[in-house]
Design a protein around this nucleic acid. Structure first.
Lengths: 138, 138
DNA sequence: CTGTGTGCAAACTCTTTGCATAAGT
DNA sequence: ACTTATGCAAAGAGTTTGCACACAG
């Protein structure tokens, strides 16, 4: 599942120039240990504490942002107050369940965005976000 | 520019069941008086006050949400703390200038989203948001 | 040891709410 | 008059920050 990237969290962290501290290693294990995930800082903090990893919410925020900068995570654009993060950093899109605010990946192969207008003078496209909003039928 | 919809803000408001109060009429004039616009509550408030319309920020928030409910506005999903609103409620997408957080419409004719995977059991697509992120070239 | 990271609490930003006053019909 | 909207200030939610202490190299 994670074979192109070092298994050991401490290795991955070191590669990005982040010191593998207890908290960072523990969070990395949580976040990258089981497939692709979507979460908020609050969720990560709750899960960490629940798993016996004593870490403060402030450190979770710091760490998540450091991971984003390091390219290990990315943020997902959703309206609303909370910031969502995604462990899958490669190009892909999302289903968004309005009912409960959940996200599910859509593989880029499963959707096609074409016919893009050329970006305005002097600008270039850095990314395209697609959010397919879903509600329960009836 | 606005010919399928009553010109008079007070009419539009009445149609939606909102009392045409001073503030609501003034805000409607500001927002719908000049083509399609994108803004935050803060921006609307500043512009209103600047135009001599005495309105509180709380009322701006209330009003914007009422307009959204009435279908006169819609929110735009962007990451970050502030909520953006859009006067264009019909189906369309956006360019997002990361440099300054500005939005520009993309007509649906200018972009094509195809090959959508069918939504999970028991759900249906309510909307598709596409955000094309732009940065200045070098 | 030396420098970076962590935790706590306070600060901050954006948004919502409660309640008395003002305005619409 | 009766009802709904507004404004203010206070409360809330999510996130960031400052600084003393702890830990990694």
């Amino acid at each position: 599942m994670t074979d192109k990237i070092p298994e050991l969290p401490s290795e991955r962290l070191r590669m990005t120039g982040l010191r593998p501290t207890r908290q960072r290693v523990a969070l990395a294990e949580l976040l990258f240990g089981s497939g692709d995930r979507h979460f908020t800082a609050e969720m990560v903090h709750a899960e960490a504490v629940q798993n016996g990893v004593p870490v403060s919410l402030a450190t979770v925020y710091n760490t998540l942002h450091q991971f984003v900068q390091a390219g290990l995570l990315r943020e997902v654009a959703i309206e609303g107050s909370k910031t969502y993060f995604d462990t899958k950093t490669s190009n892909h899109f999302h289903f968004f369940f309005e009912k409960d605010g959940t996200l599910v990946d859509i593989e880029p192969a499963d959707i096609k965005v074409e016919n893009l207008p050329k970006p305005p003078e002097g600008t270039e496209i850095t990314r395209i976000d697609v959010l397919v909003r879903l509600t329960p039928i009836k």
